[in-house]
């Protein structure tokens, strides 16, 4: 019996206009990712990695094809439903963390829960638990400027995790970190995949980072080339 699929992409393409030209960062891409898998996407700049990540996270729409994530066909969701779906199912980790500079680590992690119908107490418990999980229980009340790059990225991971999504998408999460901090972040992602069953799709340029994943896919000019299993 095959594993339950978290992501099913069938012939998805993405085109947009840039001046007088039509750019096609993704073309007829097929992809399946089982639930709980840690997948790395590699490829040169402009190969469509981030575009694919944006489509998987529901912040962008494919021009063509079908995209089913966690059993939901995204094309069938309206804008409001898609926003709700994103809040419930996806956590996004950015290369440059994108934390709100005037908020503390705790307040940054709290952001995804502010609009959910949850008591203040429950919300605080979940935020504390997420920060504990990423090893920042003692840095909750520090602002981003008082944290190192690695710590900022761990806050961003806690923020992505706090709503307990099925899918984590990470756009070069170690791209701005030194080797030691990057290694800790990769360990954390692997732990989230193995121990907490999160499905992770990570874009990276770094082959060492890709080694942390269960599977690595190469993307070039919007087309998947080959795959490597760790």
């Amino acid at each position: 019996m095959s594993a339950e699929m978290m992501i099913q992409c069938r012939g998805i393409s993405k085109c947009y206009r840039k001046g007088s030209q039509t750019v096609t960062p993704l073309e007829k891409l097929d992809l399946e990712v089982p639930r709980g898998e840690f997948l790395a996407l590699m490829g040169p700049s402009g190969s469509g990695k981030t575009t694919l990540l944006n489509l998987l996270s529901g912040i962008d729409n494919p021009t063509d094809g079908s995209l089913i994530i966690a059993g939901t066909e995204l094309a069938k969701l309206g804008r409001r439903a898609l926003t709700k779906w994103r809040a419930r199912h996806v956590g996004y980790i950015f290369q440059l963390y994108h934390l709100v500079p005037v908020l503390t680590a705790f307040e940054n992690v709290e952001l995804p829960l502010l609009l959910s119908p949850m008591s203040r107490r429950d919300r605080h418990q979940r935020v504390s638990a997420a920060l504990e999980l990423v090893g920042l229980g003692d840095r909750m009340h520090h602002t981003p400027s008082e944290l190192s790059g690695g710590q900022e990225q761990r806050v961003a991971i806690a923020r992505a995790l706090v709503a307990d999504p099925d899918l984590l998408v990470a756009d070069e999460p170690t791209g701005d970190l030194d080797r030691e901090a990057a290694s800790k972040i990769l360990d954390l992602l692997r732990q989230l995949s193995r121990q907490h069953g999160k499905t992770i799709v990570m874009v990276t340029h770094d082959p060492r980072a890709a080694e942390a994943a269960d599977r690595t896919l190469q993307l070039e000019k919007g087309i998947l080339l080959n795959q490597t299993r760790s």
Partner: peptide, 16 residues
């Protein structure tokens, strides 16, 4: 601009 985009990525609706 980016901060608001991040909030929307986190599931904040545009009206929020």
């Amino acid at each position: 601009v980016k901060e608001n985009a991040v909030l929307r990525t986190l599931g904040w609706p545009a009206r929020a």
